[in-house]
Structures are given as structure tokens and as C-alpha cells.
Amino acid sequence: AVTGSQTALLLRAFEKDRFPGIAAREELARETGLPESRIQIWFQNRR
């Protein structure tokens, strides 16, 4: 499950760019500790 702090970080990124590229998703994966594929799905679901 995604924690509150991970969600906050993802929401901030989403406000800046609703369609992040692979580099941005990989950076978010490093920052959150989540797999990049999970980040991609999160953005798809959020849109």
C-alpha cells in the first residue's frame, strides 16, 4: 500500500506534470521506494 508521505510526494509531482516521462517516474520511484511500474499505474489511475 502507498503510505501518506508517498501519496503526498506523488500528489505534488502530479500537480506539476500529469504525464511524467520515464525519467521523472524513475526519480519518483527512487524517492518513494515504490517500483516505477507502480508509479505509472498511480498516475494513470489519478488522471
Rank of each mutant, 00 (worst) to 15 (best):
A1V: 11
A1N: 12
A1Q: 13
A1G: 12
A1L: 12
A1E: 14
V2A: 07
V2P: 10
V2S: 04
V2H: 06
T3Q: 06
T3V: 06
T3R: 06
T3S: 12
G4R: 14
G4W: 08
G4F: 07
G4S: 14
G4H: 14
S5Y: 15
S5H: 13
S5L: 14
S5R: 14
S5K: 13
S5V: 13
Q6D: 03
Q6V: 12
Q6W: 10
Q6Y: 07
Q6R: 05
T7F: 15
T7Q: 14
T7H: 15
T7K: 13
T7D: 11
T7G: 08
T7A: 14
T7I: 14
A8M: 11
A8I: 13
A8L: 13
A8K: 11
A8F: 08
A8P: 02
A8G: 06
A8E: 14
A8W: 08
A8V: 10
L9K: 09
L9N: 04
L9M: 11
L9E: 04
L9Y: 07
L9R: 09
L10P: 01
L10Y: 00
L10E: 01
L10T: 00
L10K: 00
L10F: 01
L11Y: 05
L11I: 13
L11P: 01
L11M: 12
L11G: 04
R12E: 11
R12T: 08
R12N: 08
R12G: 06
R12D: 08
A13Y: 14
A13G: 02
A13D: 02
A13V: 06
A13S: 06
A13T: 03
A13I: 04
F14A: 01
F14W: 12
F14L: 03
F14G: 00
F14T: 01
E15L: 12
E15Y: 11
E15S: 09
E15K: 09
K16I: 11
K16V: 10
K16E: 07
K16H: 09
K16F: 08
K16Q: 10
K16C: 08
D17N: 14
D17Y: 05
D17I: 04
D17W: 05
D17R: 03
R18G: 05
R18M: 14
R18V: 05
R18F: 04
R18N: 10
R18T: 06
F19L: 04
F19H: 09
F19Q: 05
F19S: 06
P20F: 03
P20Q: 01
P20N: 00
P20A: 03
P20V: 03
P20D: 01
G21T: 13
G21C: 07
G21Y: 02
G21L: 05
G21P: 08
G21H: 05
G21D: 14
G21K: 05
I22C: 08
I22F: 11
I22V: 11
A23L: 12
A23I: 10
A23N: 09
A23P: 05
A23M: 10
A23Y: 07
A23T: 09
A23G: 08
A23H: 10
A24Y: 05
A24H: 04
A24V: 11
A24Q: 10
A24L: 10
R25M: 15
R25Q: 06
R25E: 02
R25G: 02
R25A: 04
R25Y: 12
R25L: 15
R25N: 02
E26F: 07
E26R: 14
E27K: 13
E27Y: 08
E27R: 13
E27N: 08
E27V: 11
E27G: 06
L28W: 01
L28D: 00
L28H: 01
L28G: 00
L28T: 01
A29C: 05
A29P: 01
A29W: 02
A29Q: 04
R30I: 08
R30P: 00
R30L: 08
R30A: 08
R30G: 04
R30F: 06
R30T: 05
R30V: 07
E31R: 12
E31P: 00
E31H: 08
E31C: 11
E31D: 07
E31T: 11
T32K: 00
T32H: 02
T32C: 05
T32V: 07
G33N: 05
G33I: 01
G33C: 05
G33F: 02
G33H: 04
L34Q: 02
L34I: 08
L34W: 09
L34K: 01
L34N: 00
L34G: 01
L34F: 03
P35N: 07
P35G: 05
P35M: 06
P35W: 03
E36D: 08
E36P: 09
E36Y: 04
E36N: 05
E36M: 13
E36K: 04
S37Q: 11
S37T: 10
S37P: 10
S37N: 09
S37M: 09
S37Y: 14
S37H: 13
R38S: 13
R38G: 07
R38D: 14
R38V: 15
R38E: 15
R38T: 15
R38L: 15
R38F: 15
I39C: 03
I39K: 01
I39T: 01
I39H: 00
Q40P: 03
Q40V: 12
Q40A: 13
Q40F: 12
Q40W: 09
Q40G: 07
Q40D: 15
Q40N: 14
Q40E: 15
I41H: 11
I41P: 01
I41Q: 14
I41S: 12
I41D: 14
I41Y: 08
W42E: 03
W42R: 01
W42T: 00
F43N: 00
F43I: 02
F43H: 00
F43R: 00
F43A: 00
F43V: 02
F43T: 00
Q44A: 11
Q44K: 10
Q44V: 08
Q44T: 07
N45Q: 13
N45W: 13
N45K: 10
N45P: 00
N45L: 10
N45H: 11
N45S: 08
R46F: 10
R46E: 12
R46V: 08
R46A: 14
R47D: 04
R47C: 03
R47E: 05
R47Y: 04
R47N: 11
R47K: 03
